[in-house]
């Protein structure tokens, strides 16, 4: 009797003494958070590598309007990413990547609305918002596919190298936009993010299927929607940083 009483007392006074849940979250959610933390380190590593390599190349010093791509200095992104589908040859700097950013932000909002509906056990609303989230993810991935194909194909003018050879587009050895490493970093960073979007869509589709067949109604809660929601918001968060460091600065 006395022992039980002292255990009870210990439980009330010591948060980490056992028998309680100090982080007040389920195991799965905490593990998703720590996975995302480790993933954040991976993306930080990639983006900081971009900064490191950019700092080890000379910056373009002339006026922005007179900018011409060269392998001698690091390019100004708004002069490189200026194409929009169906508007061939029109100089619209950063417009397309801006549209992509809005698509991803919107799909993040629909995801958080799905989580909200899940907390209310409203299967119909979860179905609707999960579907919109998947649509947003697929739209973003489609935009990125176009962006990549345009980047790889390049422009008609191309860029003349110091030995007179004119290069069009980009690959891992050479590109018409700047130093070879610029294209490598573009492929690696946006590619790694795109891979995350793709696996996020896959997870969303699996959860969407479970929602539709009523798995979570039987289980009594929609916590799986919250867990994939965390992952999906993280993908959006990473894009916010990629947008700033790759396209704006």
């Amino acid at each position: 009797m006395e022992v039980t009483a002292s255990i009870e007392k210990e439980r009330k006074t010591n948060l980490w003494g056992g028998g309680t849940s100090p982080l007040k979250a389920s195991y799965g959610k905490i593990m998703m958070w720590f996975f995302l933390l480790s993933d954040a380190f991976t993306f930080s590593g990639l983006l900081i590598t971009y900064g490191f390599l950019r700092y080890s190349y000379p910056a373009y010093t002339g006026p922005v309007s007179a900018f011409k791509p060269s392998a001698e200095y690091w390019p100004i992104p708004e002069k490189i990413f200026d194409a929009v589908p169906f508007l061939h040859g029109v100089h619209l700097p950063l417009l397309f990547v801006g549209i992509m950013t809005f698509i991803l932000i919107l799909s993040s909002v629909t995801m958080v609305l799905a989580v909200e509906a899940g907390q209310r056990m409203d299967r119909k609303d979860v179905t609707k918002w999960m579907l919109w989230t998947i649509v947003g993810g697929v739209a973003f991935l489609g935009c990125q596919a176009w962006e990549w194909s345009h980047f790889i194909t390049g422009t008609e003018e191309g860029m003349a190298l110091s030995n007179g050879i004119i290069v069009h587009g980009a690959n891992l050895q050479i590109n018409e936009y700047g130093p070879p490493l610029f294209a490598s970093l573009f492929f690696f960073i946006t590619g790694f993010h795109g891979t995350h979007v793709a696996s996020g869509i896959l997870l969303n589709v699996i959860i969407f299927y479970n929602v539709v067949v009523g798995t979570y109604d039987k289980r009594g809660h929609y916590e799986m929607v919250e867990k994939v929601g965390l992952y999906w918001h993280f993908v959006d968060l990473v894009w916010v940083f990629v947008f700033t460091f790759f396209y704006l600065i």
């Binding site: 380190f41 900081i48 900064g51 700092y55």
Partner: peptide, 17 residues
């Protein structure tokens, strides 16, 4: 740790330049 890595690698990049 990310903040540390930013400072370290940007300084390193400047030295290489």
């Amino acid at each position: 740790f990310v903040i540390w890595l930013i400072i370290a690698l940007l300084a390193e990049g400047g030295s290489i330049l």
